[in-house]
Computed example of a mutant assay.
Amino acid sequence: MIAALLISVMMMSPAQASAVDPPNDHVTIEKLKVNGTGCRANTIAVGVSPDNQAFTVMYSAYLAQAGAGAGNKDQRRTCSITVRLNVPANMQYAISAVDYRGFAHLEPGASATLSARYHFQGTGAPTYTVHSFASGLDDGWQVTDSVGSGLVFSSCGKDRKVDIDTELRATADRADAPTSLIAMDSTDSEVASTYHLTYRNC
Rank of each mutant, 00 (worst) to 15 (best):
V83G: 05
L137G: 00
D139P: 03
G36D: 03
S155Y: 12
D159C: 07
L32G: 08
C39L: 02
L114I: 05
F55D: 00
A66Y: 10
V98H: 03
P50W: 07
T37P: 06
M12I: 13
G69D: 00
V34W: 05
G102L: 06
C202G: 08
A134R: 13
G148L: 04
N24K: 14
A3K: 14
P14I: 01
I29Q: 07
T78M: 05
R77L: 01
V162P: 04
E167Q: 12
G36R: 00
A112E: 01
V48G: 05
T82I: 14
A134P: 07
G136H: 12
T129E: 05
D139Y: 11
A177P: 04
A192H: 02
N42V: 04
P108K: 11
P108L: 10
Y59L: 10
A15H: 04
Q65N: 14
E107S: 10
G102N: 11
M184L: 09
S146V: 14
K33Q: 13
V57G: 02
Q142H: 10
A66V: 11
E167P: 03
A125R: 13
K33F: 14
F55P: 01
S13P: 10
S149M: 02
S80M: 09
R40Q: 13
N42L: 06
G140R: 11
S180F: 01
S135K: 07
G47E: 08
G150D: 00
R84N: 06
H196D: 07
A66C: 13
V27T: 02
A45W: 01
R84Q: 07
P126C: 14
M58F: 06
T187Q: 11
D173K: 03
G150C: 03
T78W: 02
A116F: 02
T187P: 04
L85Y: 01
A70K: 13
R76F: 03
S115E: 08
V34R: 01
D173C: 04
A97P: 08
F153L: 04
A70W: 12
T82Q: 15
M91E: 09
Q65M: 13
K161H: 14
I81H: 02
S18D: 06
I29R: 00
Y62D: 01
V143S: 12
P126E: 13
P88K: 03
S13C: 12
Y93V: 03
D176W: 10
Y62M: 07
P88N: 04
H119F: 15
S18H: 00
D165V: 04
T28Q: 00
G38S: 09
S186H: 08
S115Q: 05
A97T: 12
S154L: 12
C79W: 04
H131A: 06
A70L: 12
T113E: 12
D176G: 07
L151H: 02
V130N: 04
T144N: 08
T78V: 05
